[in-house]
Nucleic acid binder design. Structure first.
Lengths: 202, 202
DNA sequence: CACATACGAGACGAAGTCGTTTCGTATTTC
DNA sequence: GAAATACGAAACGACTTCGTCTCGTATGTG
């Protein structure tokens, strides 16, 4: 994967050092533009430079092209996965569900839908996506496995599919406008409770 | 919504009539390009004309611009929702799930992910999306309600959320590469059975 | 201080796209 | 046969973006 040459790098060479301020301004401008609706394909270096208040050369000095810059910017967007409090499985799942498709950064919710076409354009990018989202799935997996041990969940639960059952509707809600009138907290509760109860008669 | 002026229109005026062959070639070329990964924003009239073997003027004679053409092309892509056979709720749900994100046209599965950013760019487009997908959700809703009557499903089932539980994982699978190693038929069975059984202990 | 490098700004030619218009030709009605 | 309209092809001027390069200036190391 392409890596930028940051202000932090460089073996203390002579001359003026790279501006950390420019580093951040470029990445921020990139994320802003994407989150405002500019598709990655239509994203231009000119626009990024203009938004960042930076010369184009300053960008090309750091990244070989648009794609490498975008990948670096998206890496910056991700935060650590949320840590559930561990009280009950139901409460932990609720905590995780309301953050599906979110990160600490408010722009993430708007950026994510824009990435789906990119993901589907190459197996390589889909792999990158899997790596980024894996830690979050792992957290949910551990909560479910804990529930199977404590008896809060059935012992023969299909854990992987259950992750999909919980996550899928939340993603649909956020990315496809499913059930737009229902608040996220309410939807999360209904999803968890319906998954727990099952559709078959008691 | 903008409408094209088709070969079928025109009150039998004199002069050479519009070529139906060109109509179809333009729409087909548009769908081909989108399904091959060209984002809608990056889609060019030039490329469509070239692919269709048609002059640009022939396109501008029918549609006012790119957006109107794309909307018309997507309309052509949709087919009627599948009709479940009505044997058992479980079998009907399986039938519906394997067609989630599909239509009779093979390209639909590749086109759909490309539309998500467009949907999220305006409330108007999200509404159009809802209208297109509503009939399919309605079919699943009826299957679930039938199951509540026959006793195959619990009487107090949250129908809307259950639709999301069933559909969401299949969409994740298709659009985000979730569980890429699992076959669709197998995944559909596991999803249905896990939803039916529920996660809580028996 | 001398030197090296980065900075923002912008000029550069090449390429692509836009929507319109003009070709010469083809097809249909009256 | 005359008139009307559509056809594919291509040229038009205006615009945007590309990646490179050159300005004059700023900020570091030695």
């Amino acid at each position: 994967m392409d890596r930028m040459i940051t202000a932090a790098d460089a073996p203390r060479s002579p001359g003026r050092p790279r501006s950390v301020r420019a580093d951040e301004a470029i990445v921020e401008a990139t994320l802003d533009l994407i989150s405002e609706g500019t598709s990655i394909e239509a994203l231009s270096i000119e626009a990024i430079a203009g938004r960042a208040g930076v010369g184009k050369a300053t960008i090309y000095r750091r990244w070989p092209g648009k794609d490498a810059l975008v990948i670096d910017a998206l890496r910056k967007l991700k935060g650590p996965p949320p840590v559930p409090r561990g009280e009950s499985v139901r409460a932990d799942l609720l905590t995780l569900l309301v953050t599906v498709g979110r990160t600490p950064d408010e722009r993430a919710a708007r950026v994510m839908p824009c990435l789906i076409p990119e993901i589907n354009r190459s197996a390589d990018r889909m792999r990158i996506w899997q790596e980024i989202t894996a830690p979050r799935r792992q957290v949910m997996r551990e909560v479910l496995q804990r529930g199977m041990v404590t008896g809060e969940l059935r012992a023969d639960l299909d854990v992987e599919v259950t992750i999909g059952l919980l996550t899928g509707p939340m993603l649909m809600h956020r990315m496809l406008g499913w059930e737009p009138e229902v608040a996220e907290q309410t939807l999360a509760e209904r999803v968890v409770d319906t998954v727990l109860a099952g559709a078959a008669p008691a």
